[in-house]
Amino acid sequence: MVSRALLMYIASRAATFAATIFLAFTITFLLLRAMPVSAVENIIASMTAQGQVYDPKALIQLRRSLYELFGLTGSPVEQYFRFLYRFLTLDFGPSILAFPTPVRELIMNRLPWTVGLLGFSVVIAWIIGNILGTLAAVFEGTKLSKALQSIALVIYPIPYYIMALVLIYLFAYLIPIFPLTSGAGVLTQGLTPAAIMDLIRRSTLPALSIIIPGMLGWWFLSSRTLTLNVLSEDYTVYAELRGLPRSYILRRYVLRNILLPQTTALGLALGTIFSGALLTEVIFAYPGLGQLMYRAIANGDYSTALGVLSLSIIGVATATFILDIIYPFIDPRVRYR
């Protein structure tokens, strides 16, 4: 199976992968440097914000030393290479938000939360969305299908913030099944079954807020369209003509053919979860990478911002790369001989 052509293919894709990452890094770096935010000024301002008594001369000296401490000195070129080195070694140095805790530690603290919530939610939304969409297309014209479509068309355009607040209001306030605060409870420290249940309970609302628009929104609509297309394809009709049963056709013909683009989309979606889900995290006070990145950017913490963004870049690039590599294995039409 492993032919020279295949190796060439993988090699060319790998080159693209590397180039993408490098380019993305450079653009990110330029954007971060172009921000009119100064971490040092922010810190000094927060110290003096409420009129606390500080010695003015001491502030002047502090300002100078902070610049050095945070490694914000040096020309842009120097800084570029310094950050490039950090990026390649995946060691982003100390953060500014929580100096001198290393950026890596901050990210690792949040990573399992983000990956857990988003990974889970995206996959579930994808699965349910595809099932519903396929059903809606297969039973096209029936009341069930029409109902599903109407629900989807109504829910899809609802802004996420509103959806989240409505969920909170309904299920954490009116009918208090879920707690108002998400994330970890006291019990969640440790791996006991009680901790796991507690974690699930506290994470359900944020997960729902992502799953519902997902499964009734994009995944539903796209899978429905895809299924309708496949159903009207010649080969599907031919399969019917040959007397193949409905369920078989759905499995072998419809699902097989729509799963190709849908899996690609899923792969890409999973690649993007490393940038977190900022709105979800803010509204539900759920720990995650999105908020970390937001705070980093707002406070001018280049290292942390770069750290999270790098993760995101690598995530998406890797997902694309993997998809590129395994796609020929799934779709026979795209094979190189």
Binding site: A39, L97, N109, A285, Q291, L292, R295
Partner: peptide, 18 residues
């Protein structure tokens, strides 16, 4: 709001949240 490094009670370091 959300503390980036909550298990850190060394507030003598510059830039720590309130």
């Amino acid at each position: 709001g959300t503390h980036a490094d909550p298990k850190n009670f060394n507030y003598l370091v510059p830039g720590r949240p309130g």
